[in-house]
Nucleic acid binder design. Structure first.
Lengths: 185, 185
DNA sequence: TCTATAGTTCAAGCGGTCTTGAACTTCATG
DNA sequence: CATGAAGTTCAAGACCGCTTGAACTATAGA
């Protein structure tokens, strides 16, 4: 007695028949796309966007139905979002199930994970390049090769610096929401 | 009569037995990782790094052998790299085959593609959110929903701004770093 | 022109990630 | 404690992009 009405026919045109308003679907998917761009799962973004837009607490079953996800999927998605602190889990008094509510801006999640995951990644690359340099020197590689190796290291360094700046900026952007940057391009 | 000696046994430990020096392998793979991080193919980075480190022109067959790639793969990889202008194709007088040589810094390629691909992507997302906003307004959605929709738009905007800043910075980094490009454009 | 080698293309295979759904565990309630 | 719904886990499978390799085309040299 679950949501068979909903999961029954996705339809040939691919049009979802969940009862989200059209504008909600569009917005929710757009957020899914942004967040995917930042290296997260599209559906993490969709779940957060749904909760954020509705500005209310929903059960996993409701999320499952509205966004046409699987039970297991919702369980994992809300766990991730909760761990990152962008949604909270609340238990209503007379209710048998947990409800979820959007808490903070999604950017928080992006910053957090980028800090952990991406910096570790770049650090690893720099270590590799350092090792290559040491090996090259002890192998008496020619001068030009060593010069170029160093240059490669700087490529990674530039990446890391850019990433840091990027994080710092995104933080400022969200805080100082209105102002400064005029619509360009 | 190809490179059977090389492709024969990758070995259980995964150690490649091509005759790149150890330090070259490490460096080449590190560059492959950075570039993958930027959304390119790992092997595009490896090919460029190989050519750049050796500072000489190599044939496709040589690249294929040294980096343990397939013939078709090398063909496509060098085509991409050439299109982005980070390697050049030269024909030696008495030689039957083309040779490839690293031309510019890889960062050039990153900047170029990020400009085209990623900005288009974000632009698309912003259009979607704009549409959602219009739809929501004509559907007389409640005030708070509309407020939150606008906020989502700013998330995409922040992303776009961060990306721009990122590009600008990487450019500055490279210029200042290597001094290759004279003063200002 | 003919032949051999270089170079290109793309369908099929491979590998990695995301999602599903059923079995299982936990929990609120009677 | 018994029951059923809520919630979790994870193996199997869907999905997607990258790589391979064989067929094909182009080109240099005889």
């Amino acid at each position: 007695m679950k949501g068979y009405l909903w999961s029954a026919t996705p339809g040939p045109g691919g049009a979802p028949l969940a009862h989200l308003a059209r504008w909600e679907t569009v917005a929710v998917d757009a957020v899914g796309n942004v967040i995917e761009f930042w290296g997260f799962k599209r559906n993490q973004g969709r779940v957060w966007a749904f909760l954020y837009l509705r500005d209310a607490a929903f059960t996993a079953a409701e999320i499952e139905k509205e966004l046409e996800l699987s039970k297991g999927g919702v369980s994992m998605l809300v766990r991730d979002l909760e761990r990152w602190g962008v949604i909270v889990r609340v238990r209503s008094p007379g209710d048998a199930s947990w409800r979820y509510r959007a808490e903070t801006d999604l950017m928080k999640m992006a910053r957090q994970v980028i800090e952990e995951r991406e910096f570790a990644f770049i650090a690893r690359i720099r270590l590799d390049l350092d090792e290559a340099l040491r090996l090259a020197e002890s192998a008496r590689a020619n001068k030009e090769s060593i010069r170029r190796l160093k240059r490669m290291g700087q490529l990674a360094e530039a990446t890391e610096r850019a990433l840091k700046l990027f994080l710092r900026t995104s933080q400022l952007d969200v805080k100082g929401m209105f102002g400064v940057f005029a619509a360009r391009s």
